[in-house]
Write a protein that binds this DNA or RNA. Structure first.
Lengths: 356, 356
DNA sequence: ACCCTGTTTGCATAGGTATTCAAAATTGTT
DNA sequence: AACAATTTTGAATACCTATGCAAACAGGGT
């Protein structure tokens, strides 16, 4: 069915040179005279020739493809991450094979599918992999980089944001600002991201000898944040005035849900009655109606360093393992009462003064 | 640097069979006895062998990879589309090479990069391609499917939603419900999606001999919707009561921006003073605070048919060209006053009655 | 024991390019 | 003009798997 493809031999014949010459014409820095290169390109143009990257990969043992395994593109944290990875890899001349649905369980089943294609490297976001699989990739010589996940003593690179540290800082902010009844709305409890954020928050509260925060379980979704807030603010707590006065939400989506519940359904004022802080600095946080105070992870920097490191490792497998841990930034908007002195890096995102 | 790879020959030697036997063991339906297959798998297991998809692609002339060119993953309409494409292609045993930033201008430059890799087919979302490029792909025998874009007489498949029809229906709804001063907030004006929605809306208004809608230009973003609303509702229009009483926004993001402007900044009531309708049925439309009435494009169905058709065409290049045009669905929420009789397919999305 | 049928097997080759090596062509030097 | 030094060229081979073909094999029936 496939029409006969035009190969480097066809071009060679047309141009009156050898196949090697054609190959060299397309290899930057190879030894060809300008004259033959021109002949080759002219012939290629005429025949509609284009080098076959598959054949090239086979012989050069370099596919110029990387695998990108993403946990969940629907969570609004990830599309920008995906876009950044695409852009950065493109700048490095790497194509991207995308794989979705890589939760921890799946990754081990997924990886063979990507290894088949002889990718030069694999980036895995927000999932871990078994140590056997890590060892196997190592044996194949395929470098792995974990993004937003860390595996203590495996031979894999990782670049993460310091969730624990950020969450500890949130606790400090709440406490120092004088909040007395803290609460936490969790993400899916079995994810390491949630565990880190929760651990950081609770451990710092404990260190400062404050009462343990109330907690409600969510699953990262808007609706779960909404529901969780309603669980934290029961009717009896509302009437007794014992309801939380500071809620830390494990991500923005739940933060927005909580905000809607607190303001629209419970008729409390934010931040006067309750402070709310989210995590991720998703686009919708800056919408006029929300202006959610939140934590921004330095994704641009993280992706850039993940890609840069991947390329470096492809070129030098002996390169030392990196384990980057980036610090986050507090984005100050209008949903939290904060202390005079803010104990972590922050920026204020002013309310845009739109013409009108 | 690369350690020596383990090939089918190594496995053959280990298992005491020929290389062909190894190949056949991995080819479903090939002629191998159960006994040799077992020997092969045992040896493969022992050596850590895995077939090389690159070499396989080279000889079988089938890469089992498709190219997916997406215009813009950051626009919240697309992540679900991407996820659906990934899932559907995976079910068909196809890997996906992703390419971003495929706006109309770029596509022609981008395609050669994907064709290099001998993909079995290419899906292009929300962008057109030049007829030369279409002809070139045709010559190579690489099928193209356009998603959400249509090119009249090119040999490419397309599956679209009927934006014109949906927009005409919006006009009908507004008019029949008794709105008198319509308005339109546009997306980027040079995109075909915007052109269709605008054209449908305006043409139907004209047919029904109503005054032409006011219009403000946006760029699909939340902020642009906010700003556009402020332009439509100037101070003088507000004081004279001449402000629009029905706003159709070319997508949801702008609809939400407009909604925030209208309610929070202009202090008008929705839908009592103003009706607002969006487009896409993005997640945030259903948030309690917004409950935006909008149009849902049947993306699941569209993606499924795009993929199904792609696979069919790969297997039979002579298959007739399809040009699917799917009808959209009105999602009735709380931001628009609607007539008794709704003239298009619709569903009501009830306010969830959350426990609390 | 034989032949006939149907299944398995291995050999050899193809698929399209990159690269080594030695030969050929070019350039520069005196 | 002759030679050395350098650049350019082509032939041959390797990368790893799938598959057509003919040979080997197993099984059934007489």
């Amino acid at each position: 069915m496939g029409r006969p493809r035009v190969t480097s031999f066809d071009v060679a014949r047309e141009a009156g040179v050898s196949q090697s010459a054609v190959s060299r014409a397309y290899t930057p820095g190879a030894s060809v005279s300008a004259k033959t290169r021109d002949k080759v390109f002219a012939a290629a143009q005429k025949l509609g020739y284009q080098p076959n990257a598959i054949a090239r990969s086979l012989i050069s043992r370099r596919s110029n493809m990387v695998g990108l395994v993403m946990a969940d593109v629907v969570n609004p944290f990830y599309p920008p991450v995906l876009e950044l990875f695409m852009r950065n890899f493109r700048e490095q001349g790497q194509r991207v094979m995308l794989f979705l649905g890589g939760h921890n369980q799946d990754v081990d089943e997924l990886l063979p599918q990507v290894l088949e294609y002889q990718v030069d490297g694999i980036v895995i976001t927000s999932s871990t992999l078994s140590s056997e699989m890590a060892a196997y990739c190592n044996k194949l010589g395929t470098p792995i980089t974990l993004f937003n996940r860390y595996v203590p003593n495996a031979r894999v690179d990782s670049v993460c944001s310091d969730n624990i540290d950020a969450a500890r800082n949130i606790a400090d902010l709440f406490i120092t600002a004088g909040h007395k009844r803290l609460a936490y709305i969790s993400g899916q409890v079995n994810t390491s991201t949630n565990q880190d954020r929760q651990k950081g928050f609770f451990s710092r509260v404990e260190e400062r000898r404050q009462p343990m925060p109330a907690m409600a379980e969510g699953d990262w979704s808007y609706q779960s944040g909404f529901d969780a807030a309603l669980k934290l603010f029961t009717a009896e707590k509302l009437s007794s005035g014992e309801y939380p006065d500071a809620v830390f939400c494990a991500n923005d989506l739940m933060g927005l849900g909580a905000l809607d519940a607190i303001r629209c359904k419970l008729n409390l004022r934010v931040p006067d009655d309750v402070s709310v802080i989210g995590f991720d600095d998703t686009d919708s946080c800056s919408w006029h109606n929300y202006r959610l105070t939140t934590i921004r992870t330095p994704v641009e920097k993280m992706v850039a360093s993940a890609v840069e490191n991947m390329i470096a490792r492809i070129n030098n497998p002996e390169k030392e393992i990196i384990a980057a841990l980036e610090q986050s930034l507090l984005i100050v908007r209008d949903t939290a009462r904060l202390p005079e002195q803010i104990s972590m890096p922050f920026i204020k995102d002013p309310k845009p003064d739109t013409a009108g």
